[in-house]
């Protein structure tokens, strides 16, 4: 692995965050959040597009957008955060194309997951990895 200044900074930043936030079993919390949303149903792929920057300079505001043609609701999860939940979006009868953009906090380089519940009751997901240079500590 090549070690450059940026990589060192990122490592330093995430270490600082780790000392601020006690480590928790994130994997189980993620599973819990997903199970709560899907009720244990199978999750397919396709039909949902999650757009994230490949590299986020500042983990405090990472612009993301998610679109899924027939979704009735979408959840966003950040697997490397102290708490994986990011947002739950429910679309009402007057919403147009089922898309939304927002800005989120990411503590370190990690995977962001979007899971959509489609109108026919099935689930689909998209996963993107975001490299974070300076973590949004405590977020």
């Amino acid at each position: 692995m090549k070690i450059d200044r940026r990589g060192l900074l990122a490592v330093g930043g995430s270490l600082a965050c780790t000392t601020l936030v006690p480590f928790k079993a994130i994997a189980s919390e993620t599973d819990e959040a997903i199970a709560k949303f899907t009720g244990g149903a199978n999750i397919g792929t396709g039909g949902i597009t999650l757009t994230t920057p490949e590299i986020a300079e500042n983990g405090n505001t990472v612009p993301i957008s998610v679109e899924s043609g027939k979704a009735s609701s979408i959840i966003l999860l950040a697997l490397g955060n102290p708490n994986p939940n990011v947002a739950t979006i429910n679309f009402g009868p007057l919403s147009g194309s089922r898309m939304t953009s927002t800005r989120i906090r990411l503590r370190k380089t990690q995977e962001v997951v979007a899971i959509a519940k489609l109108e026919d009751g099935s689930f689909t997901k998209d996963v993107k990895t975001v490299k974070v240079t300076i973590g949004g500590c405590g977020g």
């Binding site: 957008s65 939940n85 007057l94 953009s101």
Partner: peptide, 27 residues
């Protein structure tokens, strides 16, 4: 909401950035 009918309903967690911003579409 638009004229009493829902457009979007978003639940936010602490991982949403400062000054929460949302962009979406409506009919």
């Amino acid at each position: 909401d638009f004229n009493g009918e829902n457009v979007v309903d978003v639940g936010l967690d602490p991982a949403i950035s400062v000054n929460p911003y949302f962009q979406f579409n409506a009919i």
